[in-house]
Amino acid sequence: MLPQASRVIAVERETRDTFTFTVAAPGGGSGFAPGQFSMLSVFGVGEAPISISGDPGEPDRLVYTVRSVGPVTQALVTRRPGEWIGVRGPFGASWPLAALRGKDILIVAGGIGLAPLRPAVYYVLRRRGDYGRLVLLYGARSPQDMLYRKQLSAWSYLPDTQILTTVDYGGLSWRGHVGVVTTLFRYARFDAQRTAALVCGPEVMMRFVLRELETRGMALSDVYVSMERNMKCAVGFCGHCQLGPHFVCKDGPVFPAARVKRLMERYEL
């Protein structure tokens, strides 16, 4: 429950307000599972839940992609290599990738929702023979707001891998797709009967994605979503992140879509 001091190793700018920084895992690292999050703190400022966006195959370092939207995240993104932050965790339920062996994996991400899904991509790529096709659909606000652009480009050349990106609007230099992430489905090549989908992004986006997946013949039992709520204690005591009968920090953030779909559609929950 107590934060452990961790040294910042590297900071990389992703977009105008989003940074990826790497810290040394406390105590050398006990590993994490794709989809889990940590509570990161800047001493004297506060604490915020941040998804782990790095490679689970490198447990000695923890990577976080943080968008500066408030006092804590603003303080986090201004840390420099050699400075210290507090780390609690990792916490929460992960993408159930071990149980999905043998399936094609469809990843649908919007905005910074790609961050908690990147460890799932690393995981699948490290065990490529255990899975079928890997399809990643990613939507961002504009080309300047896209995360991990070089990496996405590199992955698109891998066999049995399809990476499709889109933006809500683009300038004349953008020659890629323009439209919401659901418009990418018509170009995605996957067999709904043997695919599992992992989805993360703004909740409204996820609702439309679930609808699209069902239209394309996918059973909700094969779909997982990562939910976001105001997490404080991260261990299911404080109730800040309650979502109906669930605590997102402890029971989630990754849920089977069938378990939370109705809750996602309920006003002010």
Binding site: G70, V180, T182, P202, F208
Partner: peptide, 18 residues
């Protein structure tokens, strides 16, 4: 439908405040 979703400006940081 796509335009309505686009108008929601889903990825704006307005909803995230930490």
């Amino acid at each position: 439908q796509a335009m309505r979703i686009q108008l929601l400006d889903l990825y704006s940081p307005a909803s995230a405040r930490a």
